[in-house]
């Protein structure tokens, strides 16, 4: 403990004509239990009042705070500085539109993804809310929840070399969504319908099994398994 931390932080505000992209250095005294959330706020309070970054829940559940921490995408709020070396380099996620400094517009990307993949339960019936709900197998419900746990943080997209090269690639997040809805009997789409949204090289066939997604997902979703599963189903549907 009692380390002095050296931060190298990307600074650039596209809205400010005086600003140009560069790295800026800050130093900070480490304290016990310091997370990057605490550290960045201290830097902003005392050294750089205009430093932009995004935190919302600061508890690792909302997916706002992903950034490149020493090169890898992670949730900053739940990264303890003691797990990092003395020198900490912070960059915004490169795959998303830059807002300023460490803040990126991943929400916009995710919304577009949702629209494209139609990530909602497609059903025609109106439910009678006075009646007892339809039963669902308890294991199936838990399985759906496991796939539903994605927080749309974008780490998987940034960790994916394919997504780096091809802007339209839907990423592990999108493929996992399809797996989630495919598992859900309330969604009445069939495999042909899913093929229509992920059955191409910007969809599941674009994935080159690089597994960066699997290794960075903060929710430890079974992305590898889900992508393989959807690939099998879609390859079959395509034949």
């Amino acid at each position: 403990m009692k380390r002095t931390l050296n931060f190298n932080i990307f600074r650039y505000n596209p809205q400010d004509p005086a600003s140009h992209p560069h790295m800026e250095a800050y130093t900070l005294q480490e304290t016990a239990g310091m997370t990057l959330f605490i550290a960045l706020n201290q830097i902003r309070e005392l050294q750089a009042p205009s430093l932009a970054f995004d935190f919302v829940c600061r508890a690792g559940v909302c997916g706002s705070c992903s950034m490149l921490i020493n090169g890898r995408p992670r949730l900053a709020c739940r990264t303890l500085t003691e797990s990092l070396p003395d020198t900490i380099t912070l960059l915004p996620l490169p795959t998303f539109e830059l807002i300023a400094d460490l803040s990126v517009n991943s929400g916009k990307w995710m919304r577009a993804m949702s629209e494209r993949l139609e990530t909602w339960v497609h059903s025609v019936e109106e439910t009678d809310l006075d009646r007892i709900e339809l039963p669902m197998d308890p294991d199936l419900a838990e399985h759906i929840y496991e796939l539903d746990r994605c927080i749309e943080c974008g780490c998987c997209v940034t960790a994916c070399g394919t997504a780096q090269m091809r802007e339209d690639f839907i990423g592990a997040v999108g493929i996992n969504k399809i797996a989630r809805f495919k598992a859900d009997p309330r969604d009445q789409r069939n495999d042909q319908d899913y093929y229509a949204v992920v059955g191409d090289d910007d969809g599941v066939f674009g994935c080159m099994s690089l597994l960066g997604c699997q290794d960075v997902c903060p929710k430890e979703l079974s992305l590898q398994t889900q992508i393989a599963y959807i690939r099998r189903k879609m390859a079959f549907a395509g034949l």
């Binding site: 490149l68 090169g71 890898r72 960790a159 070399g161 099994s209 690089l210 597994l211 960066g212 290794d215």
Partner: peptide, 9 residues
């Protein structure tokens, strides 16, 4: 690739 230092990549 350089920044990720990730084997499969």
């Amino acid at each position: 690739m350089r920044s990720m230092r990730h084997a499969d990549t």
